[in-house]
Design a protein around this nucleic acid. Structure first.
Lengths: 236, 236
DNA sequence: GGCAAGCGTCTTGCATACAAGCTTGTTAGA
DNA sequence: TCTAACAAGCTTGTATGCAAGACGCTTGCC
């Protein structure tokens, strides 16, 4: 959450990503160029560039001449995202040779922050830290490329969790993080990898599948309209 | 190489990526906005958007007020890229349940094209197909997200191969692809995964490390200047 | 001869203007 | 009353203009 190093320019895309990671922006949210330009006191050009960057990273998508929207991953895409995370995090834990003690210390400190956020009432910070743990771990373990990829996947995962009403508990997640770091510190990398797979599996298992082929799902449910009526299974 | 489906707009970034994949653009190449705009008969705006997309995908980078350049991965980044590829391709092979016969057929056809390109003299097409095989495989095996990620990694890898003077033979690569598909067809996924890891390892082993911390390496070598002279180890 | 300051040219950074298309509200007609 | 065509407003798509900075050359000085 702290990008205040060396008077870093608070990039627009960074702010949007952070908001997504904190759960303040949910899937399907519309992001108007002019609105954002006004908000950030800049021109549409800069905003547009930021949105293009986010599109390339798979965070938003554009509907031509209609607007920018935060992605709404389908159930299949959600599963693919989780598989991708599994692949990356499992591999990094299995491949790494030794874990410097400084890395362990940093991760433990991160977990401390997680606990503090969970104890507090800042839901956004909690969501952010819980996701950021994985990114920090991969980066600390020495692969920046995978860390960058995982960062985007984490944003996707946060959106997915909100979209498919994750029931996984924050405290539980944090405990699992703790165990992984413990195994890492003990040098038992295989067990750490196995725990990581289980952890990600737990989060994924907490999702509830819904009829994602129906773009009117939310509205239909809110209005209590039976799917037997007209408008069922419209083209996506 | 064929993006002629439904009169698809030949996007600028796509063309640039294809050129990189074919080895026609090498690491460090400067990509001027105005030059590209003239070449594509469009304005700088569109070019700039394409370059921003490529930047987000890690293919080019920008030096403020100086210009856009194709990335020149360091030796460490090269290793990270290969590790990332390994992670993804190994995982997809280990995770997939069953491989449809249509998929096998498509991959075999792809290999046929590879052989044809190797027999012919189109070095660009050869390079493109050899890299594209992996992307096609992951996509055919059902994970679009990983396929997209791998596509970018493949571009990186092609640049790396040229930069670090890969000695790996095209025919050899193609044979290894063949073996992998054979194992896939036989249902021996574990062996396919192992072969894939070996295959990627072979390519990586064919690279020759060079002093990549020295931005003057090429010039220095061309001029036969000993590193003991002035200008050694300049700041990056 | 060597060095440094100054200037010109070329590049990107950013903002703005206008064109094109989608959405929605309105109105005319059956 | 319902349908369909039309029009207005708002959104993105694209181009252009100007400002700011970097590089390379020239010029002047020591």
């Amino acid at each position: 959450m702290d990008h205040s190093v060396l008077s870093a320019p608070p990039a627009i895309d960074r702010i949007i990503i952070d908001a997504i990671l904190a759960g303040r922006i949910s899937a399907g949210t519309r992001l108007g160029e002019q609105s954002l330009a006004t908000l950030f006191a800049t021109s549409r050009t800069s905003v547009r560039e930021a949105l293009i960057r986010l599109e390339a990273r798979g965070i938003v998508h554009i509907s031509p001449r209609r607007g920018w929207f935060v992605i709404e991953p389908s159930w299949e895409e959600a599963q693919e995202a989780f598989q991708a995370r599994c692949a990356i995090e499992m591999d990094i834990l299995r491949t790494v040779a030794t874990v410097p003690s400084a890395t362990i210390a940093a991760l433990r400190d991160h977990i401390r922050q997680e606990r503090a956020a969970i104890a507090g009432d800042d839901v956004g910070l909690r969501s952010y830290l819980l996701g950021d743990f994985h990114v920090c771990m991969v980066e600390a373990l020495g692969n920046r490329i995978l860390a960058d990829i995982l960062r985007d996947l984490t944003a996707r995962t946060v959106l997915i969790s909100a979209l498919y009403q994750s029931t996984h508990d924050a405290t539980e997640s944090c405990n699992e993080h703790q165990q992984i770091v413990d195994d890492l510190a003990a040098g038992d990398l295989d067990r750490a990898a196995a725990l990581m797979v289980a952890h990600i599996g737990n989060v994924e298992a907490g999702l509830t599948k819904r009829i994602d082929t129906d773009p009117l799902f939310d509205l239909r449910q809110a209005l209590r309209i039976e799917p037997t009526r007209a408008g069922t299974n419209p083209p996506r």
